[in-house]
């Protein structure tokens, strides 16, 4: 008989659960239901009283580690807290969201618990087979583990967030002495470019390819126009900005570059594989190694001059054979209205 435990943590506000935590909860509830397993929830944060209300109706038992020492994400304290929670719950299956906070510590926790761990899980079947990607989203595999406890770190956006039903659950405190740590967390810092960077919560991902800084039909490079058009669109559409590797790499080649582009914007290859409802690719060839970063973008459209680009061969839903400079200028005009 499996015993399922889902680990969650409060978000930065300190009063609510991180969205990814609620997604893990619904995955756990579903799984527990499918083979009538017992479900326990673990909760981590300085004060969990308010956040625990979001777990109403999910599980008969909520365990929590609280206290100021656990307010901020830090390896030593988070690992100790999760270790204690797992020990108290004595589960066979541990689900947890792949937040930055838990991704940092969960391998260590699994090690301490004598368990096995698999990460970036996108689905868990009722027969306890877990799906995940290998080789930068190029190969999808389904894995099983004999060893218990088995930790599964779930990717964000793969399950619907749990919504509470009924009264707030009783929370059982698990006492943990905060371990000595030589680390203090000073807070967070946003990149100076701020609004031009990746916005994981945006509905639309806008990807700019190297074509923006190449010679246009008049034989000239129009990097300044490109910048204006792209920034204009991002402001108007509240979109997240991504880039192809070749455009990000251009800074090293001293070609005309878009000043606000950094490696944080890169999609595919060594870059990110974000989840967005929609993606619009512009001036980007759409070849496989680059498009792997689009694996989790649901609806895809592309603007490209080449009818034979990768997008046109089954990678996008719609490809507009057109000059992105002209189209985006018109799009911005419409959005401004």
């Amino acid at each position: 008989m499996e015993k399922i435990f889902v680990l969650t943590h409060v978000d930065e506000s300190g009063t609510a659960l991180a969205k990814a935590s609620l997604e893990a909860v619904s995955a756990a509830v579903e799984l527990a239901k499918s083979f009538s397993a017992e479900l326990t929830i673990g909760l981590l944060g300085a004060d969990v009283a308010q956040a625990a209300a979001q777990l109403a109706g999910a599980a008969p038992k909520v365990l929590a580690v609280t206290g100021q020492a656990f307010a901020q994400p830090r390896y030593a304290t988070d690992a100790a807290a999760c270790e204690a929670l797992v020990k108290a719950a004595a589960p066979t299956i541990v689900l947890a969201p792949s937040t930055a906070r838990f991704a940092r510590v969960m391998a260590g926790v699994a090690h301490r618990a004598g368990g096995a761990i698999d990460t970036h899980i996108t689905a868990v079947s009722p027969s306890l087979e877990a799906t995940r990607w290998f080789y930068r989203q190029r190969i999808e595999a389904v894995v099983k583990r004999e060893r218990r406890p088995w930790f599964l770190l779930l990717d964000a956006g793969t399950h619907a967030a749990y919504s509470a039903t009924g009264a707030a659950p009783a929370v059982e405190a698990v006492a943990v002495a905060a371990p000595a740590s030589r680390t203090t967390v000073a807070g967070t810092r946003s990149p100076q470019q701020g609004e031009q960077t990746i916005r994981p919560n945006a509905k639309l991902l806008f990807v700019a390819g190297a074509g923006w800084t190449k010679k246009q039909s008049d034989g000239q490079v129009h990097a300044a126009d490109a910048e204006k058009l792209i920034l204009g669109f991002l402001h108007a559409a509240d979109a997240s900005l991504g880039s192809s590797k070749s455009l990000v790499d251009q800074s090293g080649e001293n070609q005309a570059t878009l000043k606000f582009m950094t490696h944080l914007n890169q999609i595919g290859q060594t870059g990110a594989t974000p989840r967005h409802a929609k993606g619009l690719s512009t001036c980007c060839h759409g070849e496989e190694p680059h498009v792997v970063g689009w694996r989790f973008v649901n609806e895809r459209r592309a603007i490209n001059l080449d009818a034979n680009c990768g997008w046109a061969r089954g990678k996008a839903d719609v490809v507009y054979l057109a000059d992105a400079f002209q189209v985006m200028a018109k799009v911005n005009e419409l959005l401004e209205k």
Binding site: D249, G252, E253, H285, E287, E288, P289, D306, N308, C309, G310, R313, G314
Partner: peptide, 24 residues
């Protein structure tokens, strides 16, 4: 083009030759 053996010249570079150049 069939996307398999008959592909655009640029695809031959990427899919076939895996052509890359380090900067500098």
């Amino acid at each position: 083009y069939d996307g398999r053996i008959l592909v655009s010249h640029q695809d031959a570079l990427l899919m076939g030759g895996k052509v890359q150049a380090a900067p500098g």
